[in-house]
């Protein structure tokens, strides 16, 4: 599989025949280092058209993937189509959550580059398979599932993608929730703490609204091997609120685990180096109705 930065050629060294790691870069300046660390596809958030707490880009880089996962309004159709026309020449994945993007991408013959990433909505094999039947490249499994559920989905839909690492988005609002209480838009240093709890939830606001992330960093150094055993070969790392070095080390860690390193040792080293609260998220905690 060919991907990566055409300007450096670094991507060509990665063994990406099977497992593939996509990384939402914290900043448009990151890509080359991420490819060197073992990432197969760097995803950049498109300025104005993505919901992500990372620095956003507008300059089209050949080979990168793009996060166009906003919910689009009627008057944005022209703008999105213009961006799709610009991206047409590339090969990178286009992550989306609004079904309209599927219709618009079809007009440009780009359906097979789409990855459906609705965060919470893809929680069963029938829904994932329905989306795959539309001719798209992949569907991201919701991180709300247990490991057992994810593995079962992998058995039915091996081309699904699993978010293995990073702070997970907890909520998206169109409202300016932080600036309504005096905060500034576009800053990455805000957190929320519920008055009876200790955890701090990273929060971010821009012109599209407000995002709140988990206090913990989802971590899957061990589980990624089980996922691979069940046929899953696409993995995603979310760089939101992770430092540049931490993100690189995460990518390097997963790549070495996939290449045969002991996952417990890799996780231990990562834990030692970073103060992030690592968690297995919902892998072993089933939510109730």
């Amino acid at each position: 599989m060919i991907s990566g930065s055409a300007s450096t050629g670094i991507w060509a060294m990665n063994n990406t025949e099977k497992e593939r790691i996509a990384v939402l870069a914290g900043s448009p300046a990151d890509p080359e280092g991420l490819y060197a660390a073992g990432c197969d596809e760097v995803i950049l958030a498109y300025d104005g058209l993505s919901l992500a707490a990372v620095r956003k880009a507008q300059q089209i880089l050949h080979g990168t993937g793009w996060m166009l996962n906003a919910v689009f309004f009627e008057d944005e159709k022209g703008q999105v189509q213009k961006v799709l026309a610009q991206l047409q020449a590339g090969t990178g994945s286009i992550y989306f959550s609004d079904p309209a993007l599927c219709a618009w991408a079809d007009e440009y013959g780009m359906t097979d580059r789409l990855v459906y990433r609705p965060d919470t909505l893809a929680v069963s094999a029938p829904d994932l398979l329905w989306w795959m039947k539309q001719g798209i490249r992949s569907v991201c499994v919701s991180p709300l599932l247990t490991l057992e559920e994810i593995l079962a989905i992998g058995d039915a839909c091996p081309d699904c993608e699993v978010t293995v690492h990073g702070h997970l988005p907890m909520s998206f609002s169109r409202r300016p929730l932080l600036s309504s209480f005096g905060a500034q838009k576009g800053r990455f240093d805000y957190t929320l703490q519920e008055e009876t709890r200790q955890e701090h939830y990273p929060a971010y606001e821009d012109e599209r609204g407000t995002l709140i992330y988990t206090d913990y960093v989802q971590c899957s150094f061990t589980e990624i091997l089980q996922m691979r055993e069940h046929g899953i070969h696409r993995f995603f790392i979310d760089g939101s609120f992770l430092g540049e070095e931490e993100l690189m080390d995460a990518v390097r860690g997963y790549r070495t685990v996939l290449d045969g390193a002991d996952p417990r040792k890799v996780e231990e080293e990562y834990r030692k180096k970073y103060r992030s609260v690592l968690s297995s998220g919902y892998y072993r905690e089933k939510t109730i109705e």
Binding site: V71, T120, L121, L144, L168, S171, F172, Y282, T287, E289
Partner: peptide, 23 residues
């Protein structure tokens, strides 16, 4: 909902109750 419908997991994280399944 203050958040986009179906896109909020505050309840899941804080109480393990799944908002998208009525909890």
């Amino acid at each position: 909902c203050v958040n986009w419908s179906g896109r909020c997991t505050l309840s899941n994280r804080m109480t393990l109750r799944d908002a998208n399944r009525g909890g």
